[in-house]
């Protein structure tokens, strides 16, 4: 146990002050705006919980919530196993691993607004490298909902697989090789080694990946908006796209109420995550 000393708070003060200005104050402001009708900053009326009731009572909100949850679920179902497979593969590559990590990290440094552009260029029928394949298979992301979803999932996986791989690799490489060797001598299968030796030791490393990937994909905006702006027929209208529309439409009170609700959803996810993590024996 580290020594107990409340003077340690003095060392946290700069960090707290910074977070108060860029995080806490804006958060309180959002919650406050959510109870008002705002025409301009000089013309604000109290409306109570009217916005919240409107949003929660509308079918559109529930439909968007469902789509966002489905998207986040699919993202996790694809990227976590895939990232683990790649990380496990890299662990066996010895010195080559660092090249794999660098490769996977490249998409992380591409400006977010250019990621959809890169992919739309890639699948352009006339000029894209995958253009012939797109023509041959009749892939149409503009009009076919399943294709839009597939494209979004591919783009998101391309963008973020590096984070999953890097953090999973970090967790895996911290396990002493002797553990694996001992299990292998005992005749354990690769799956058994993964399930009983590796997985329990990387839960904490994977925890943060799960949470980050869940929240970021649940609130996906830049890619979804640039690729099809919620279409076709609202099939990719996610929560964040509705919020973006309200901000662009200057309905600030309603947007703030919606933002508050989204924050509460995120908060619930964080809380569930922390409770689950504290049950884990700390590594």
């Amino acid at each position: 146990m580290p020594p107990h000393d409340n003077r340690a708070w003095l060392l946290l003060l700069p960090a707290l002050a910074l977070l108060a200005v860029v995080g806490l104050l804006p958060l309180l402001a959002v919650v406050n705006y959510g109870f008002h009708d705002i025409f301009s900053l000089a013309d604000i009326h109290w409306v109570g919980v009217e916005w919240f009731a409107d949003i929660l009572g509308s079918d559109r909100f529930l439909a968007s919530l469902g789509r966002s949850l489905l998207f986040a679920g699919l993202v996790l179902a694809i990227q976590i196993p895939l990232g683990l497979v790649i990380a496990r593969f890299l662990i066996t590559c010895g010195r080559g691993a660092v090249w794999g990590l660098m490769l996977c990290a490249i998409p992380l440094v591409v400006p977010w607004n250019m990621i959809p552009m890169l992919w739309l260029g890639l699948i352009d029928k006339d000029t894209g490298l995958l253009g012939p394949a797109v023509l041959a298979t009749g892939f149409d992301y503009k009009a076919t909902a399943v294709h839009t979803w597939a494209l979004l999932l591919a783009v998101d996986t391309w963008h973020w697989i590096g984070l999953v791989v890097v953090l999973a690799y970090a967790g895996l490489s911290a396990i002493p090789p002797a553990y694996r060797q001992a299990a292998a001598i005992d005749g354990a299968s690769r799956w058994a080694i993964f399930r009983h030796i590796e997985l329990p030791r990387i839960t904490r490393a994977l925890g943060i990946v799960l949470l980050l990937r869940f929240v970021d994909s649940f609130m996906i905006y830049t890619e979804a908006f640039a690729i099809n702006a919620g279409g076709p027929h609202d099939a990719t209208r996610f929560l964040s796209i509705e919020l973006g529309e309200e901000i662009k439409g200057f309905s600030y009170g309603q947007a703030a109420a919606r933002a508050t609700l989204y924050f509460l959803i995120v908060l619930a996810a964080v809380w569930a995550f922390v409770v689950a993590m504290r049950r884990e024996p700390s590594a």
Binding site: A15, L19, V22, G23, L25, P26, L27, A29, V30, Y33, L211, L212, V215, D216, M219, Y221, S240, L243, G244, I247, Y252, A255, A256, A259, T260, Y262, F263, V266, L267, A269, V270, V274
Partner: peptide, 16 residues
């Protein structure tokens, strides 16, 4: 700090 790390930017963009 975990909560602030995962708060979506679009939630805070207006008051910021």
């Amino acid at each position: 700090i975990l909560v602030f790390r995962v708060t979506p930017p679009v939630v805070l963009s207006l008051p910021i």
